[in-house]
């Protein structure tokens, strides 16, 4: 399997984003240079980003052709731990309003905590302590607009 080079991917990412935005921007009214529509400036910005993406890509392809080593970082991507963190955030996003602050945050902290070198006991303690702390500071102290226990759990 060909190992994709870091800079190749970087150039491709910029290029892809530029094409996506550029394509959408071209769909808006461009207007004229004198009276620009909503699409003019974004199209310009996307073109500039695309240009940089192309140059990054091109330079790396040239470097690869010369046989230069890729500059990819050695550390493996922390898939399991990363997914736990992102999962914890997405869980909070999806359930905060429905479950309420206390249950949503407790589960999120528990999930996030499992990404680290914590024993189950430590994770549970963190979940309890942080939930309590955040409830007192943000909900009671600062009037965060979130019910403690949400409508999904109401009897």
């Amino acid at each position: 399997m060909i190992r994709l080079r870091s800079n190749t991917l970087c150039g491709l990412l910029f290029l892809a984003i530029a094409l996506g935005f550029g394509w959408a921007a071209a769909g808006y009214d461009l207007g004229t240079a004198r009276r620009m529509g909503p699409g003019y400036f974004p199209l310009l910005a996307a073109a500039i980003l695309g240009l940089f993406g192309l140059v990054i890509l091109g330079r790396d392809l040239l470097a690869a052709a010369r046989g230069a080593a890729s500059t990819s970082p050695d550390e493996p991507v922390p898939w399991r731990r990363g997914l736990l963190i992102i999962g914890a955030i997405v869980f909070f996003a999806a359930t905060a309003a429905g479950l309420g602050l206390v249950p949503a945050l407790a589960v999120s902290v528990l999930l996030a905590s499992r990404a680290g070198a914590n024993s189950w006991r430590q994770s549970l303690v963190q979940a309890v302590v942080l939930t309590l702390m955040c409830t007192v500071i943000f909900q009671m102290g600062l009037g965060l607009k979130l019910p403690l226990i949400g409508p999904w759990l109401a009897l």
Binding site: I85, I86, A88, I89, V90, F92, A93, A94, T95, A96, A97, L105, S108, V109, A112, S113, A115, G116, A117, N118, Q122, S123, Q126, A127, L130, T131, C134, F138, L144, K145, L146
Partner: peptide, 30 residues
């Protein structure tokens, strides 16, 4: 650090939530 980052996650979630009082900001955060 293993005890600190769950706290960062919690505060970040609440911070992102509070701006618009909606979970959408938290999704953007992720």
């Amino acid at each position: 650090y293993d005890a600190l980052f769950p706290a960062i996650v919690a505060f970040s979630c609440i911070g992102a939530y509070s701006v618009m009082s909606s979970g959408f900001g938290v999704l953007l955060l992720a």
